[in-house]
Each structure stands twice: as C-alpha cells, then as structure tokens.
Nucleic acid binder design. Sequence first.
DNA 1: AAATATATGTTGCAAATGCAACATTTTACA
DNA 2: TGTAAAATGTTGCATTTGCAACATATATTT
Lengths: 219, 219
Amino acid sequence: MYQMYQNVLSSELFRGIAEKDLSSMLRCLNARQLAIRKGDYILRPGEKIENIGIVLHGTLQIMKEDTDGDRTILAQLEPGSHFAEAFCCAGIVESPISIRADTDAAIMLLDFTRILHTCTHACVFHTKLIENMLFILANKNVQLQTRMEFLSKKTIRKRLLKYIRHCSNGTTNTISIPFNREELANYLCVDRSALSRELAQLKKEGILDYWKNQFKLLK
Amino acid sequence: MYQMYQNVLSSELFRGIAEKDLSSMLRCLNARQLAIRKGDYILRPGEKIENIGIVLHGTLQIMKEDTDGDRTILAQLEPGSHFAEAFCCAGIVESPISIRADTDAAIMLLDFTRILHTCTHACVFHTKLIENMLFILANKNVQLQTRMEFLSKKTIRKRLLKYIRHCSNGTTNTISIPFNREELANYLCVDRSALSRELAQLKKEGILDYWKNQFKLLK
DNA sequence: AAATATATGTTGCAAATGCAACATTTTACA
DNA sequence: TGTAAAATGTTGCATTTGCAACATATATTT
C-alpha cells in the first residue's frame, strides 16, 4: 500500500504535493484503486471515458485497433504514468483507443471533473493539480511535435541524424539514447533491419560511430 | 479595433467569455497589441518565451530552422489562433522554433503567469481561461496523436486510406477533406506527385473515387 | 472570352526501403 | 561456465517512393 502511494506521489500529476495531504486529496478526487489481470482490457474502443488513470504497478499498453483488424501500439505505460487525461480534457467521451494490461497491474482512477472544479471544501490543491495537468499536456505536445519533425523527413538517414542531433543538444559528443534498436526503429517508424543497414552505412562513411545505445557524431 | 476584439473573443482561449468582461480581462493579463510587418520575426530560436500570443489579423508561420539551414514549416497561423502556449505551459523558456509574419499582421501578447495564477483582484475568469487552455492543449494532443497514426504507416496507400477512413467517421459515404493535394501530401509527409499517382491507382482499382477534395470509398 | 496563374495528373528512372531469411553478437540465467 | 534467449547485423530482391520534368485541367483576372 505504501508503495502504491509512492507511485501516485511520483506521478507528474501529483508533483509538488506533500505526502501528508495525499489521502484527503484522493478522497476528494473520488480515487479508486483497481487490480487488473494480465491481458484484461481497461478501456475498449467506444467506451465512455470518465476518469483519469494512473498506473500504480505493472505495465499497460495503449493500442489503436481498427475495424479492419489492423493494430498499432501507441504507447507503453509504466508505473507513475497517466492515461486518458488528454481525452478527458478535450471532452472526448467515446474512447478511440484500447488500453490493455501487459502484465498483472494496479491502477488508480480519478474523477476528472473533481480535478478541474474546486470542490465544496475549497481544497487548496486543485490549483496545483491543474497546473500539473497543463504541464503534462504541454509537454506531451512538445514531444509529439518533436517526433513529427523526425517523421517529416523522407529518408531513414535524415530521420536518424535529425533525431541524434536533437538528442545531442550541443554539449557532449557522445549521446546516449533511451531506446534499443527495435524501439528506435519503432519510434522513427522505419524497419529495424533497414535502420541497421543505414547505421552501418553511416559508420562506414565516417559520419557516425555507435555502440549499443551510445552514439557519437563525427565530422 | 472592434474587429480585433472579435478575433480575441473568437479564439479558443476566450471561448465562453462575455464581451463586456473582455477589456478588464485584457488589462489584468497585461495584454499588448503589436503590429508586425510582413517578413518580420516575432520569435527567433533561442529567444526567451514569456508570453502567449494570439493572431489578430494576417498570417504567421511557425518554422523549425536547423543550424544546417534545413527549414521545415510546422504550422500556418490564421486570425484567432494562438502560439507559444505549449512552450509556456511546459516551462520551456528558450524557443526551439521561429515565428515569422507571412503577411502584415497584428498580434496580441498575454502574460502567461497572469493566466495561470489568480490575480490580487481575484478575477473570476481565470478558472475559465485555464479550462480553455487545458482544452486547447488536449485537443492539439489528440490531433498530433492522430496524425502520428497516419505517419506510422509505411506506404502512401496505407497512410491515405487510414486518413480517409478517419475522416469518414461512419456516416456518409462521401468525405470532404480540408486540404488540397499539395496540403494533403504535406500533411501525410509524402511527395505530391507520388500521392497523385497512388490516388490514380486506387481509382483504377475501384477502391476509391475522388474529385478535388471530395472522396468516396467504394467496396 | 482570352490569357495567365494555380492546381492536379503523368511518367521515367534512380534511389531508398520493407521484408524475409539468416548470421552473429550480447545478455540472461540455470 | 555453458546454454538458451534476446538483440543486433547482413543481404538479396521486389516494391515503393522521391524527384524532376512536363502535360493537362481548373480557377482567376482583365
């Protein structure tokens, strides 16, 4: 139970909230805790979205499942991360996506309207929660926008170099990225083996050096 | 001047705000109006971001300009649209993008911190503004996420069909899209002529019919 | 209505990529 | 330490795509 609270407190939504205030807050937000079995769905396409979720433990997968059976994995949610917050804030009530437990998991659901609208007890923390929510959404925005810039490039080479230059951000020469090959290929929306091929080519041309997830721009 | 106010009121940030309250609000938010000449920069890479902007008239262009001279147009801003709001909310103070006036233009700048934090006069509209801001960010999020789903497809055909199916949204057979060919190609990050080629192919195969920006899925 | 500008379509060709199948390296763990 | 599993690299080949250059169609203007 203590661990659960820790994961709530370490979520971005509760950033800056004091531990002593947490339990009264959770009551105010009508927080409910749910245990989910591996493989079970937390949300299916078309279902009503009424809550914001926080992952307490385990991993969830957000997927887009089309009628034609085509399935895309949109995100992997680890403990401390949220889901459905953008839909709640955008007033989208019918879920366009699926969420499924990738492992046994526990989640916490919060009543969205109670975050937004100050309650009758005039709890002081609403302001902080809303501020955090703005931060979360805005950050996601910037991240998506950034990724889009990579995807707008038409060759693997350009996508890759743009990504690495973005990660390098000036200072050090050696860049460590948060992806393995498969994940990087997925992030850049290219085939893994084609990515390997391009990496090898760049190394041969002396433009880039790499080892695992460490990269170094030469020239 | 009246027209200016109309464009402020019609912006998403001020949705639901009564006209009579506007001028006192603008004072509270330290609103400033600026006239911009065509071609002038409103924001350059690295500059401090302290304000949220609203376009009053004219059009602005958001661009990503890399050190290597590579320039990507990220968005076109028409009257009533905002800029820099995501960076403000995400606490990003150094601009990673450029904004330039595409035509002669007028903009309004608002002090971001005054939107977020209730002022000494305890103006009641802050709540509404913040709610609107959440809505704006969340909606942009959903839009970006949606576009990403298209871009994750690896052939023009799949991107295109996914996009059209998304627009069709169930009901009618005939879909009208908000892009011409060039813009559609740009949105899907593909070459315009290659897009034309694929469209012709789909028509020949009897999968899709189209005329201008009207599309019709067959079969 | 003619003339110009803009949007859209067509096509050849070289380059890039996905895909599949398999090789090699690294990691995990029994 | 040895062995299985996971990650990464390699390569042939068919397909797709960008690009360029040009053709045709539609819109706009005078």
